[in-house]
Design a protein around this nucleic acid. Structure first.
Lengths: 112, 112
DNA sequence: AATCAATACATAGCTAATCTATGTGTAGTC
DNA sequence: GACTACACATAGATTAGCTATGTATTGATT
């Protein structure tokens, strides 16, 4: 089964941007980030755990995020991620690039 | 060098769609397809040869394209690619998926 | 008390797409 | 004769995201 209509894998290369954007709201733990993206996208995007945690780690290494263990509202331990200044800057760049990219693609697919 | 502002690599997963769309105009050879996408996108998208030819081969295997050797207007031999009915159908599906995907992403990046 | 669903993190291994780099060869121009 | 643009092709590397799996905790249901 190829499952073309899968909710995940929406547009490769955009996951980091979605996570960074979500963290502009407030520091959040991984599971919460995934839930948020899923809800705001109206179930169109499902962030798989096997994509989420590696991405969070990559972005920490790049200095876009910091994290610390803390208590989630449900009393469970959870690692909370916080956007850094570099992360905010990166988000701005990625959003700008994304807009340029979809404009360019739409020029092609709307061409006569 | 990472060259973030590179014109290529615009949005992974969209190359097939751009090629299929280009071939709705008329059968074209590989080099011509690349030129067309580059021009219509106003130089925002540059299709690398190392991406183009493998993609054309994949899509032929999937039955979305057929091809034959022919003469280009400049008198050189060139392989002309033609969209099949399956290719047209695939293009429609990809465009629909693309629109849904960018809508979902924009909901996330425009969220308050 | 036992079981199950939801919450929460993490990693190994695979696949697929695209890139870089390289190679071949032709036609036209300077 | 050299150079540029045209034209196709493949090998190898990189990267992102997936599937699958494992651990552990909390709260609800039976």
């Amino acid at each position: 089964m190829s499952k073309k209509t899968d909710r995940a894998d929406v547009l490769p290369g955009t996951l980091d941007m979605l996570i960074l954007k979500t963290l502009t709201i407030t520091p959040m733990h991984g599971y919460g980030i995934a839930q948020h993206i899923q809800q705001v996208s109206r179930e169109a995007i499902q962030v798989e755990e096997g994509s989420l945690y590696p991405s969070l780690q990559r972005m920490q290494v790049k200095g876009w995020l910091t994290s610390e263990w803390s208590q989630s509202p449900t009393g469970r331990r959870a690692r909370y991620y916080r956007l850094t200044a570099a992360g905010k800057k990166q988000l701005g760049a990625e959003v700008a690039d994304f807009r340029k990219a979809i404009e360019a693609i739409q020029r092609v697919i709307q061409a006569v």
